[in-house]
């Protein structure tokens, strides 16, 4: 185990020195073509979006295919951790949804340092997420609330997070599980800071339906199974723009925003294709595509999606990095204790 990590770190250092001298995209593409594929562990996007992004990448760079492995944040990281533990190199690109995973991967020497051409071209707030170049911001997807417009009027709809624990919504709340979903984990850290442990007890008393992914509750709302719930701004926006009976609530106490980065494992079997792919994720072309799914664009050239507020118009509340590092696992444990599963 230690040996593997050490080996990975040494290998990483070698590759890093090789790559830190900025390779031009064309050169990278030539090498990537020889590698032929890139395996993408992803939690930031839903399966169908991730597949479409992968397909668009292949259209842009024929000859390099993308294998999409989509799971929730905790699950996808557990998979990568198992890979490392078993000394197996499978993941080329890792797009998790829990920052703390990236931090511990970096500290253990399991990430590749690289500098893609598009790295410095992102929107301002996303630029200095990781100054050392171990990962780059590929998703800024605020967690908001939503309600089903057939079941709830705009006046009735709650205006902030405490609406979730209001007994009048008993049996009508859709949630996701922090033990599976990375974004829900950081959301729970925020709730614990704002409202304490009682928040979870009151939430439990409200008998919510708990999905595994943060993409699940909005679908539950659209289906009319529940009336109010949480979700990512992108999913809710996309469902709304598609004509479904769903509306966004920007909580007055602040939508939760944690940036999600994309990294390359030090032992990536296709390091060049991986760098090419991350560079593509940071491109205008990818931002254009992401916007059609209600996602926030990473590039300043691309306008935010219609039907949703732009990030800088939203009242945001975010847990700090320290809060996340020290808070995610304990809050998952708290959740499991309160909810019994």
């Amino acid at each position: 185990m230690h040996y593997t990590r050490l080996a990975a770190a040494v290998l990483g250092a070698f590759v890093a020195t090789g790559a830190s001298a900025q390779t031009s995209t064309d050169e990278l593409y030539e090498k990537a073509k020889a590698e032929g594929e890139v395996t993408w562990y992803v939690a930031q996007f839903t399966t169908s979006i991730a597949e479409d992004i992968g397909q668009d990448f292949t259209n842009a760079y024929p000859g390099v295919n993308v294998n999409v492995i989509r799971a929730t944040g905790q699950v996808v990281y557990s998979r990568l951790a198992q890979d490392l533990r078993n000394g197996v190199a499978q993941a080329d690109v890792f797009s998790g949804s829990d920052q703390t995973h990236l931090i511990s991967l970096k500290e253990e020497g399991n990430l590749l340092q690289f500098s893609p051409e598009n790295g410095p071209k992102l929107r301002k707030p996303y630029l200095d997420f990781e100054p050392d170049g171990y990962w780059y911001t590929t998703s800024a997807n605020p967690t908001v609330m939503a309600y089903n417009t057939d079941l709830v009027t705009a006046e009735e709809a709650p205006t902030n997070w405490t609406g979730l624990v209001d007994p009048k919504w008993k049996g009508k709340v859709a949630m996701s599980h922090p033990g599976f979903s990375g974004s829900t984990g950081s959301w729970a850290v925020l709730m614990r800071r704002l409202y304490g442990d009682e928040f979870f007890e009151q939430l439990e008393a409200n008998d919510p339906l708990i999905g595994r992914s943060l993409s699940d509750p909005p679908n539950t709302l659209v289906a009319g199974e529940r009336a109010i719930g949480i979700g990512t701004l992108a999913t809710v926006t996309r469902l709304k723009n598609a004509g479904n009976p769903i509306e966004i609530i920007y909580p007055e106490d602040g939508a939760k925003l944690t940036l999600s980065g994309t990294a390359i494992p030090a032992n990536a079997p296709h390091p060049n294709a991986a760098q090419l792919f991350v560079n593509y994720l940071l491109s205008e072309r990818a931002s254009d595509l992401m916007v059609t799914y209600g996602l926030q664009p990473m590039r300043p050239e691309v306008a935010p999606p219609p039907g949703a507020k732009a990030i800088d118009e939203i009242n945001l509340a975010s847990p700090t990095q320290d809060e996340l590092i020290n808070g995610v696992q304990p809050v998952i444990e708290l959740w499991r204790r309160v909810f019994g599963a």
Binding site: V75, Y77, S78, G179, F180, E204, A341
Partner: peptide
């Protein structure tokens, strides 16, 4: 059905041990 309903069973608990932390 059990995860949304918050009912923990042996098999879902095993799945949890196979999650993170592994």
């Amino acid at each position: 059905l059990g995860i949304p309903a918050r009912i923990n069973l042996v098999t879902t608990q095993l799945f949890q041990f196979f999650g993170y932390p592994f």
